[in-house]
Simulated assay, not measured.
Amino acid sequence: MNDATQQLLQHKGVLILAWIALLFAAERWLPAAPRRGGWTRVIRNAVLWIMNSALSPLIVIPVSLWAANHALGWRPDWLGGGIGLIADILLLDMLIYWWHRLNHEIPFLWRFHEVHHLDEFLDVSSAVRFHFGEVLLSAGARAVIIILLGIPFTSVIVFETLVILSALFHHSNLRLGEKLEAALARVIVTPSIHWIHHHAIRADTDSNYATIFSWWDLVFRSRSATKRTLEMKIGVEGRHDEEVLPLIVLPFRNNR
């Protein structure tokens, strides 16, 4: 890994931590819904995040870097610079829509993704709450895409940064003005869109899969007609959240 790559990763880390801190403070200053679950819930999500953060330098980043260095050499020269970066972001955002959708439609993948959905309230901490198995599976799927499509490592890092920033925003409990949120929702995923995805009604859970740009659900006809209400039940239909250790073993239980 060269110095430029290391610097890019450092900038990514600083930007993400700053965005987390900003949203964490903002959603307490201007909350959309009354908080539920208290600090116990936040700490639970933070523990899962810390575990996954340890995987990033050990597995996730090396796998993506290896894939970029072994990508198929079909990419034309004109697909470089700013044009290439924009094209990569749009393409990767469409593909992550489908990966997210598959996590709901394939039972094996849902076993891991369900850990994210069992959170019974949404705020910025929800955006970083994932099972380590899902993180590893996602890294493998991303590596295949990088190799087949010849995605440069720089595009991968920029896209991953945008994904995390977007996820932190649309999971947040931040109160936005109705007109502002409606305007943003035409282009990007906002809390009013993504909260429906976490509604504890399976028909809504299996909708609104987009991550950065909101139009993918319209294009692929997966946008829910349900409107967010601040009283709506968050989580998995018929299930309740669990403590950290049960969540870790949840995908491997024999009775699932």
Rank of each mutant, 00 (worst) to 15 (best):
L122D: 03
E105D: 14
R223W: 13
H171F: 01
L72W: 15
L72K: 14
S126P: 13
W216E: 04
S224N: 03
I151F: 12
L9V: 04
W66A: 15
S53M: 15
L176P: 03
L137A: 15
A68H: 09
A167S: 13
A183V: 04
P76Q: 06
L91F: 14
R111D: 14
I83V: 11
M94C: 15
E105Q: 15
P34C: 04
D217Y: 12
F130Y: 13
E27P: 05
V163G: 00
V128H: 13
R142S: 15
L30E: 11
F112E: 10
A139M: 04
D88T: 06
R36I: 07
H170R: 03
G82F: 15
I212C: 11
R35N: 12
T205Y: 05
R41L: 12
I151V: 13
L168K: 05
F220H: 09
L65E: 10
W110S: 12
L30H: 09
I193S: 00
G13H: 11
L9K: 03
T190A: 01
T226F: 02
F108C: 02
S172E: 05
W195C: 03
S166K: 00
P34K: 12
I20K: 03
F121V: 05
F108K: 03
I83D: 11
A183C: 07
L17Q: 07
W195V: 03
L230G: 02
W49N: 08
T190E: 00
L8F: 06
N2K: 02
F132Y: 09
L8T: 04
R239F: 10
A68D: 08
R101K: 15
S53L: 13
I43R: 15
P246N: 00
T205W: 10
S64Y: 03
A185T: 00
F252D: 02
G82Q: 13
L79A: 10
